[in-house]
């Protein structure tokens, strides 16, 4: 009997881990997200509702926390210095922020709330989506559900680009979230991460950022 209980417990644990992995990492608790949604609804002004991708404040209150996107970014200087033999994963920076997508009953992303670690806890650092989350939202119907669930969002703010990164046996892969004719990128395009980065290097070299005063 004891053996069966242990086996059941392991089975339950294994299933739970699999579900958690499929849904992506859960960093921000459900309670914290729900509290933040209430605050978001309290902050929003009716005339602004559409600008946040919402139909109404009432709709916001019905949304649930979806995929939690940890903040990963590639900086302009790292892109400019990237050369043959370098590994993409070495230039991906992780920040202590998480953008939690808010989804409707069909699991479609509507808007988001960003949390940032502060003094050992998580606090809201932004209500409404960053431009990268807007790109995810606009591409979500074209992406495979598992890619979106398992992948990380890689932001390249200097070039206004972002990708979903997927670890595969072949190595790290990037899936484009945007159409960009100059870069010959289109939504859902899948390529090795290094191919993607090498596409961007010439554009990164042209990008100067705000000049010193």
């Amino acid at each position: 009997m004891k053996k069966i209980s242990v086996a059941v417990a392991f089975l339950f644990y294994g299933s739970a881990r699999m579900v958690m992995h499929a849904q992506g990492d859960t960093i921000i608790s459900k309670a914290l997200i729900e509290k933040a949604i209430v605050k978001f609804a309290n902050i929003l002004d009716s005339p602004d509702v559409a600008n946040f991708g919402l139909k109404s404040i009432a709709q916001l209150k019905t949304l649930k926390g979806g995929k939690q996107f940890k903040r990963f970014g590639i900086g302009l200087y790292d892109l400019q210095k990237f050369k043959q033999g370098d590994k993409v994963k070495d230039i991906i920076q992780e920040y202590q922020s998480v953008e939690v997508s808010l989804v409707d009953e069909r699991q479609n992303i509507v808007t988001s709330i960003e949390f940032t670690e502060k003094n050992g806890g998580w606090v809201v650092s932004g209500y409404g989506s960053t431009s990268e989350l807007i790109a995810v939202k606009n591409a979500q119907t074209l992406l495979q559900k598992t890619d979106l669930e398992k992948g990380d969002l890689i932001r390249i703010p200097s070039l206004n680009l972002c990708f979903i990164s997927i670890s595969s046996p072949a190595g790290l892969e990037f899936i484009s979230l945007q159409d960009n004719s100059d870069l010959n990128l289109f939504k859902r395009q899948r390529m090795s991460a290094s191919d993607a980065i090498f596409k961007l290097v010439p554009f990164a070299l042209e990008h100067k950022g705000l000049p010193p005063k």
């Binding site: 209500y127 409404g128 989506s129 807007i134 606009n138």
Partner: peptide
């Protein structure tokens, strides 16, 4: 910086 109208956010 976004293709869908400037991204609007409230931030602390």
């Amino acid at each position: 910086y976004t293709s869908q109208g400037a991204a609007l956010r409230w931030r602390p």
